[in-house]
Design a protein around this nucleic acid. Sequence first.
DNA 1: GCCAACGTTGGC
DNA 2: GCCAACGTTGGC
Length: 160
Amino acid sequence: MNYWLMKTEPDECSIDDIATAPKQTVIWDGVRNYQARNFMRAMQLGDQVFIYHSSCRQVGIAGIVEVSRTAFADPSQFDATSPYVDNAYVDNNTASATTAEAARWSAVEVTYLQHLTRLLPLAELKALPALSANPLVRRGQRLSVMPFTDAEWQAVLALQ
DNA sequence: GCCAACGTTGGC
DNA sequence: GCCAACGTTGGC
């Protein structure tokens, strides 16, 4: 099993929202960065993912979900009414099954596992020596999906 | 709201 | 293929 972290703005989709969603499951769509997308494509069933709340009053790691469906074509890229639409598909009217096979953007489905016992603030994560190489705490790094090593994962859990 | 840092775009 | 301009991210 692999470990990951994904950022979300809690106004859009918080750990509470995932916990109260039907089947406690949400589609993780709208990722429009190639590096983040490639990490999502590497996710396997049962991989665990920290949910990180960003761009809000209390930024930090809030809970854990697991991957319940591996990468598939992100439907929002074909949806002209979605803010995540990729106009390359709409303009050319190529939102076909064939296109979906080779779709540029991917989504995964995740299912709620647990809240952490408390929200672990970014300041505490930055102070963890075990996390010093992780993109989450590196200055200027904006990656929204990233892998965690076993050691990094355990170091975060130990903060609780 | 500010602004540093980054990824993407597009002219050349 | 370079690189300036632009838009976005995201902490503070």
